[in-house]
Design a protein around this nucleic acid. Structure first.
Lengths: 171, 171
DNA sequence: TATTGTTATACTCTATAACTATA
DNA sequence: TATAGTTATAGAGTATAACAATA
């Protein structure tokens, strides 16, 4: 079956620390998976989540999705739950539950949209806005140290490419 | 901060690629989040998961972690549960449950390590090896069409950068 | 004493179906 | 009829603590 058939695709990557597909965490050869986008996303997500929970998740008592919602509300007016569903790829019932929790915590309020009373606009409270600002501030620097082995250009490139992947999903 | 500072990005909808942080899915301005690695990973993961479930998850009845385990077993000998824990960042009890399920399904067997009888080696059965080969084969091409808007160089670069992020996590 | 793996358990996350209220 | 949101519920994923066997 030759799990080595794609090795050439990774040679000559000109990276300083470019070992082959071996000796990662657990010392397993990952060559059969190296080409799968989803696998690499999951692997990169491990340190990313660790960083998030250390700097924002635990100190501010925020889950990733809650953090995201706060920051989206910070930059957008008249946000509806439907919009959050689409942006976050979370189902409507789960957004309802998330917002219930955030509302009980005094971070957001829901205001019925008077032009279409089926929908509601989600608003940050004073407290929610303050927390959003604090989380945003923290997020600006928290990844610097753990990702110091990536140059600024590499980080910018990585984010650009991730957005290119994300942008072209159909809904 | 003014939540309206990026309104100018509103204009010029229906652009192929070059738009700013607006008009993603749900039409929300994501500028406050655009710099956060974890957020971009999550966004890119949405289409990646969709691709996986369409081509492998549903037809082969495999979850992402099970797929990963199969392919790791395909390329590695004498794999222990401990190694899987470290590579996948999954806790020991959950690896136990995962392997129980895969064993019941006839995909793997566990063989006690005779040099250190605390550990076991996970082996693919005939059936498991066949499924692994099939999944691997599918994984080689399944992302081509949905990621066609990324050039080969961009995909290679993206994967390389993701691995660079992943490689430097401590355990 | 430390390590590998298991059991028991609980908590979170996510998904679906059925419902309401509005349009 | 269709849409925004809710309720109820079940399944999957993930985490911790306590334990057994082995080193």
């Amino acid at each position: 079956m030759s799990s080595r058939e794609r090795d050439d695709a990774y040679t000559g990557d000109a990276m300083p620390d470019s070992d082959a597909n071996k000796h990662e965490h657990g010392g397993l050869d990952q060559s059969a998976l190296a080409h799968v986008m989803g696998y690499n996303l999951a692997q990169a997500d491990i340190p990313a989540r660790k960083i998030f929970f250390k700097h924002i998740g635990q100190p501010l008592k925020l889950r990733p999705v809650e953090f995201t919602i706060l920051l989206l509300l910070m930059s957008n007016k008249d946000v509806t739950q439907k919009q959050l569903c689409q942006t976050l790829a979370v189902t409507a019932p789960n957004v309802t539950i998330l917002l219930d929790r955030m509302q009980e915590r005094g971070l957001v309020t829901r205001v019925r949209n008077e032009t279409d009373r089926r929908s509601q606009h989600i608003l940050l409270t004073e407290q929610g806005a303050a927390l959003a600002r604090q989380a945003h501030e923290t997020s600006l620097t928290m990844e610097n140290e753990p990702l110091r082995h990536l140059s600024a250009a590499e980080r910018a490139m990585l984010i650009e490419l991730l957005q290119k992947v994300a942008r072209h999903r159909r809904v």
